[in-house]
Design a protein around this nucleic acid. Sequence first.
DNA 1: CTTAAATTATACCGCTAGGTACAATTTAAC
DNA 2: GTTAAATTGTACCTAGCGGTATAATTTAAG
Lengths: 200, 200
Amino acid sequence: MASGRKKQFDEQTALEAAMNVFWQKGYVGASLTDLTQRMGINKPSMYSAFGNKEALFIKATQCYIDTKVAPHVDLLFQEGVIFKERLKNHMMSIVSMQCNADQVKGCYLALCQSELLSDDIPEQAQQILKKADVMTSEMYTKLFNSDAESIEIGLNKNAKANGLSIYTILKGTASMARSGIDKSELEYSIDRMLIGIGVH
Amino acid sequence: MASGRKKQFDEQTALEAAMNVFWQKGYVGASLTDLTQRMGINKPSMYSAFGNKEALFIKATQCYIDTKVAPHVDLLFQEGVIFKERLKNHMMSIVSMQCNADQVKGCYLALCQSELLSDDIPEQAQQILKKADVMTSEMYTKLFNSDAESIEIGLNKNAKANGLSIYTILKGTASMARSGIDKSELEYSIDRMLIGIGVH
DNA sequence: CTTAAATTATACCGCTAGGTACAATTTAAC
DNA sequence: GTTAAATTGTACCTAGCGGTATAATTTAAG
């Protein structure tokens, strides 16, 4: 018989702002003041909408995966494009995102995963970060293992190693992107490293 | 006409302990309690011996460079070994260090450099981290540019790109090592990526 | 117009951060 | 053995942390 004041902020917009803070500062380095300021709300609003810092982080991480990672994954399975081009398109698209001047440079996940050894990340946050790492690794292995063209070329024989190589390259470009290296330099590097893996 | 109590700890030993904490937690994540506990001293002793957290960090960083990085650099210039083997030895040696189970996994410098965008690293600490980054990059470029064998093979024509590729690979292995990937997996990846760069 | 539910702002909690004052202790020169 | 310099341990400072109690505000149903 009554139904209170309306929320004066958009939850999704606020979540994206939080995502950018974690992207820039990592889990430990992002303070509630940093977060709520950039979200444009105060602490009680944040706590009522998201729970606590860890819960906010988990949602922000999922937001990053959905909006900043998933689109590139689609390129891996695009119909009518040969395997090598699909893989290259995928990697180039990721690097382009990592270097985009309109957002934080580098990779949100790579940064926060590097904090895992610190013992300062709460349990559930650890889990989502580790899960994202394992799933990415497995995705590449499975790609080399299952893709019809990959099997044709024989890349499935070293599926796990091939997958890890791709992942290693992308972790490298993420790190370089954070340091401010130009996209073009990284694209060139990727192009040639793929040759060594047998993708050319 | 008097000369006080003797220091009850070894400064170098304490510095190495501090190095390990920064290696594990980064600059922001390493608290004075973490640091002094692992150094086995209390705060006033630390402040009198090293100045403050930033000064301790700068010395710890230099300690890392001297003891954990420099040895691998020597392998790049070893006499009586061909260029490609020198480069490979260098990279394998670094990866072996990054994966060593007896110490923190991954790279101290890569971790702390990833904190640079956070705006939470004091001025001088920023400078030493950026300088280490630039110098590493330049070292590889110069290697490809100046090494007699590199010139012979024609690798000097893409010296900058080649150097950046090497650096990118090593940033990638550093990140993977921190996640706990086996050394053998990374060695295999390096071996094949080098092929793409023309080092085989 | 009242009322109850929801969101807001303010002010605060206990705790830990980086850093320090000070007194107690140890040392070697005299 | 005294004395002055250096290091140690304890106890504390202010500021900021993650988190919350409370009261003021806004809202729509009755």
